[in-house]
Design a protein around this nucleic acid. Structure first.
Lengths: 344, 344
DNA sequence: GTTAGCACTCCACATCATCGAGTGCTAACA
DNA sequence: TGTTAGCACTCGATGATGTGGAGTGCTAAC
């Protein structure tokens, strides 16, 4: 039913392109000149009337030009976007310079993207699927404290300080190290059950309180909500787009962006992989967040290693430059891949 | 020269109080009714005229009421603020619940403050003055990687992964541990010089490359810009205050807030302790940041232990409720103190 | 099927008048 | 000398009004 003929497609594309650039409703005369169709404005008007009836464009009010509807944008990003390869400056170098630490790297990514695109960006820290203990190390720091280092599969390192009720000798610590590693290696938290705890206790012989403390801390460290951090940047960019910029909307939107929880859940949860590069586009009401009804969100997935991945999201007005955003994300993901591969 | 008599003070106070509440210029008639001075509006007008001449209040335009100037606010917070003790709900419990980790705790603090005050808040992570190595531990993770754990005075734990060019035996690792600790304990990075490196090398005998790698990572870990994190919350609150809320100003301000670097430098650098509780108030142009000329900033210092402290800042409109903010910060600081004391 | 022409719509913008809060000043009063 | 009532004046905020222009839809001619 929605079959659009060649000409309608061309006109729709022209409308969208133009609107993306100017942000103002586009009229029939503009299109008549803008395209190479050599049609008069009147003809265009007829076609536009059809396109409106089909729901691809809307009129903000009678006697204004047309702007794309969500449906129109959708068609555009799905089928009409030109794959112009982005000549984004090589981001890798900028990134590597600062890549001493994952956290810094991700912050840097968010910032870089924000500066490059002029939209708001967010990056979530990688989520680790596996939570198997790879390695545990207890070390006496001083008389009162024990440092527990837990390495989880994927080389995530966690440390916990454990308060000692009574001093513990170096031998005991060594012994515990051995025993803990023997029993816990390769387990994930759900597998650390009473039986295992009992075995450990038997082996150590005594120090019940201490063992409980230690095991508590270890399981806590592993489970630790794998604090999906979200790093944002460029939120103030939304002021650059008048259609988001009236007090009301801007404040709502910023408020929503600030509530990182909901947002990151949405972005992290964008599982359906739409695109070979894992890039997904959400237009207007396609996002689950009310405050974003006038926005579009583009997400991408970066992967650190098998099963360890995080998300990158760009939030902008519906009339965002999808080509550029998608292109930039593509190169970014590629370059991140390179970085992580080298690091491993 | 600026001696204000009792009556002028009372009037100024009334003006400020009123303006803090309403946010609108206050006229003479209002004051005449609002105060218990029993003076007619005409008299008030004369006094107001004087106050204006002295620079404590200004008129946005002829035939509008007066609003306090920065100087007026300053006088107010310095001498006229009532010390009404804030009956802030006990924040301790809320905080302790989540206080498993410093980072989470601080984020929580920022959020709590933002919700409580309806202003924008920021919290900087504690800064450690001393950088002395307390303790180093190398552990082989697998054939290719070595985990270095560095504990710095104040029990800051850092870890670094070190790629191994060739496998290293457990004995060697043990030996290195011993040697590294012998030579590096109690030193800060500036003291790790060539001489010491040479000594270490001599002792280990061989493994030159590895030792360089390890020492590199260690010094890097210690120096690591002690990433003064800043956690912000409630930035969208600024929309609640119309005087900050016009596009232009709001966007500037948000932009400035986003540039955490400058902001946190300012807030972290607020060294002069003005108040017995370490609370400082910056009004309007007293802040070093241009974008904040219409804002006030209140900062406080929390201390974790001797020499380890961080900052809390509240950013709001000049007509912020100073009493409440200062009060809230005071209780917050007290409660944080309690929390940290208990933890130690 | 396409186009020129035309009446019509509606927003954006500027102009204008009005209203009211608040001032400064003067003159009278205690 | 300090206080007050009265009054003219200022100036922003608000709303009504008018005008111009961009753009549409429709009709009739090509």
């Amino acid at each position: 039913m929605d079959k659009l003929d060649e000409r309608k497609l061309k006109i729709l594309q022209a409308i969208i392109r133009n609107y993306l650039e100017t942000g103002e409703p586009v009229g029939s005369r503009t299109i008549s000149k803008y395209t190479d169709l050599n049609l008069s404005s009147a003809t265009i008007r007829n076609e536009m009337s059809d396109l409106e009836e089909l729901g691809y464009i809307v009129q903000p009010h009678t006697s204004a030009g047309r702007i794309p509807s969500d449906k129109g944008y959708r068609l555009y990003v799905d089928t009409m976007m030109s794959d112009k390869i982005q000549e984004v400056e090589d981001m890798k170098e900028v990134l590597l310079e600062k890549a001493d630490k994952m956290e810094t790297l991700l912050k840097q990514v968010a910032k870089l993207l924000a500066v490059n695109t002029n939209y708001a960006t967010m990056v979530t820290s990688p989520q680790y699927r596996s939570r198997k203990v790879k390695f545990i190390q207890l070390t006496g720091v001083d008389e009162e404290q024990l440092l527990a280092i837990i390495v989880i599969e994927g080389n995530i390192v966690k440390n916990k300080m454990i308060d000692l009720r009574d001093p513990v000798s170096a031998e005991i610590i060594l012994k515990m190290n051995l025993i803990l590693n023997t029993f816990l290696q390769g387990l994930d938290p759900s597998e650390i059950n009473l039986q295992i705890i009992k075995k450990i206790r038997d082996q150590v012989g005594g120090y019940f309180d201490l063992i409980s403390d230690i095991l508590d801390e270890i399981t806590q460290a592993i489970n630790e909500e794998e604090d999906i951090q979200t790093y944002m940047s460029g939120t103030s960019n939304i002021f650059k787009y008048p259609e988001l910029g009236d007090m009301q909307k801007a404040s709502e939107l910023l408020y929503a962006l600030e509530d990182k929880k909901e947002l990151s859940e949405f972005i992290a949860g964008t599982t359906g992989v739409a695109d070979e590069a894992g890039i997904q586009v959400y237009i207007g009401t396609e996002t689950p967040m009310e405050a974003m009804r006038d926005c579009s969100v583009v997400t991408a997935t970066y992967q650190i290693e098998e099963g360890v991945f995080g998300k990158v999201g760009i939030i902008g007005p519906k009339r965002m430059d999808y080509e550029k955003v998608v292109g930039t994300l593509q190169t970014l993901i590629t370059q991140l891949d390179d970085i992580f591969k080298k690091k491993t």
